[in-house]
Amino acid sequence: MSSEYFYDLIEPELLYRHPLTTYQYESSYHRHNAYEIYLFLQGHVHFYINHRCYPMQRGDLLVISPEEMHRTLILDETEYERITINLKKTYVYQLSTVMTNLLSCFDHRPDGSGNIIHLQDDQLNQLLYWTHQIEESADSNLYGADVQTNAAMAQLLVLINQWFQHNSFVPQDIMPELVRKTMEYIEKHITQSITLGQLAEEFYMNSTSVSRLFKKHTGLTLRSYILGRRIELAKLLLTDGMSITDVCYQSGFSDYANFIRSFTKIVGISPGKYMKHRQAEVRIDLLPKTDYH
């Protein structure tokens, strides 16, 4: 499988990780088929999400929806510690109620923004208390451990949603302007032919400089990034019920067979199966959609 494959499948309903890394490392832009909570604890790391890049500080908390591409860049061999929790939509539904939609902090904000808050010491301690409870009960085979895990996860999500309701944190964004503008150009012209030469002409740069800087900050070639964005558009159109043939051409593909092959490789299922899955998922999506921002 290519190192630029950027759709990272999450199998369990709840996946909790608390890893330590002591070497330089950079991931490519990728996405999950699940929501993600990311708590930064220590290290020298830049976190990229869509067209933004944040230098991380202890206590930075991010929430990431399945549609948002993200990556981490570990800048040196300083010990890098973080907690990540991946949650399937169906799992969070089970924890939510008609009055309390625990997906609000993920879904009710503009795509690629409003993802990050910085926790004060007392907030960080509260969060670490509940993550510790999850960590202990998730690894236990004792009677009731699963109920304790779910209860702790619900408490954690309530806290996070409360904090994001009142989020006024303005993070430092250090994404280079050329990379940001390249991403914006791609989004604007995603249904059209996009070449490296066009991008170089648009930004008055030579093609090698554009390609090299983009790869440095995304971990992806321009071709792979454009393909990924077209697949994302195709998924939205399929969810809306558009025919697979129309989706192919409306999402920027000029060859039907290539569209089917690319979609299946990246998403893991064919466009037809994806459409059926999403339509079934939409039918059970009965939670209130009030935007609290």
Rank of each mutant, 00 (worst) to 15 (best):
I37L: 15
I37M: 11
I37Y: 05
L39A: 04
L39M: 11
L39F: 06
L39C: 07
F40W: 08
Q42L: 02
Q42Y: 04
Q42E: 15
Q42R: 12
G43N: 05
F47D: 00
Y48I: 10
I49K: 07
I49P: 06
H51L: 12
H51K: 14
H51F: 13
C53Y: 03
C53A: 14
Y54S: 06
P55A: 06
P55T: 08
P55I: 06
M56Q: 09
R58A: 10
G59A: 05
D60L: 01
D60E: 03
L61S: 01
L62N: 01
L62V: 05
L62Y: 03
V63N: 02
V63S: 02
V63H: 01
V63K: 00
V63I: 12
I64D: 05
E67Q: 13
E67D: 09
E68R: 03
E68Q: 07
M69E: 10
R71G: 09
L73Q: 15
L73V: 13
L73N: 14
I74A: 11
L75I: 10
L75R: 14
L75Q: 15
L75K: 15
D76H: 08
D76M: 05
E77A: 14
E77P: 02
T78D: 08
E79K: 13
E79R: 10
R82H: 11
I83S: 08
I83T: 14
T84D: 13
T84Y: 14
I85D: 05
I85A: 04
I85M: 05
I85Q: 04
I85P: 02
N86F: 13
